[in-house]
């Protein structure tokens, strides 16, 4: 059985310093404590800066003696996170899990993983290859994905594309340009005109 009391305490604990850590955990909906949603801010000085990443959390029956199941809902371009499914490759979510860890510490570890990828132990081989061989492209793609999927204003990206296409540029080129400059519309326009 899930230790309800502990999960409740963890939720209170975590949301207490929500403002300073930026990490929050909410109920997924309904009244069950077994399905939660976490959110973490992208760490500064990384391609994920400025994004807010939503993580789906399922608390298994054996919690806290079994690790919580965590998965990215927000699409993210990272060697240890599947670009398709959002599955996370992190040791403490698997065999290094310890009952002394909490949902919050797990989320903090994921945040740390965003700033320090481990391409030698990849979840997404394509991303890992790119990270190792062509870091610049990797960084700009990751920035683009953050821009496109992890920002509340990220609906804007389609509008930017739309606007630039209306200026007469082909859509493929527009997307490439936006991708290359990390989603900045003006920079993309400059790039397209040059």
């Amino acid at each position: 059985m899930v230790d309800i009391a502990r999960v409740q305490k963890e939720l209170q604990e975590c949301n207490k310093d929500k403002d300073s850590s930026g990490i929050s955990v909410k109920l997924k909906g309904g009244n069950t404590l077994t399905h939660l949603v976490g959110s973490i801010p992208g760490p500064v000085a990384t391609p994920y800066e400025g994004g807010t990443f939503i993580i789906d959390i399922v608390i298994p029956d054996g919690y806290p003696f079994e690790p919580p199941k965590m998965q990215f809902v927000t699409r993210v371009w990272h060697p240890n996170i599947s670009s398709q499914s959002g599955a996370i490759c992190l040791d403490i979510l698997k065999k290094e899990w310890s009952p002394a860890l909490t949902i919050k510490t797990a989320l903090l570890s994921i945040q740390a993983l965003l700033s320090a990828p481990e391409p030698d132990d990849p979840q997404d081989a394509v991303v890992a290859q790119q990270y190792l061989k062509d870091y610049r492209t990797f960084a700009s793609t990751a920035r683009y994905w953050t821009e496109a999927y992890a920002k509340s204003s990220s609906v804007g990206i389609e509008e930017k594309v739309q606007r630039l296409v209306e200026m007469g540029f082909p859509e493929g080129m527009v997307r490439d340009a936006l991708n290359a400059v990390g989603g900045d519309e003006n920079a993309a326009l400059e790039k397209l005109c040059s």
Binding site: F65, I92, S98, P99, A100
Partner: peptide, 22 residues
């Protein structure tokens, strides 16, 4: 609880302490 989970996982031979990184 910890022991039961570990025994059921077939890890009887090396059940580690519950503390993180111990």
């Amino acid at each position: 609880e910890h022991f039961i989970v570990k025994i059921n996982e077939g890890q009887s031979k090396r059940i580690r302490c519950m503390a993180h990184k111990c």
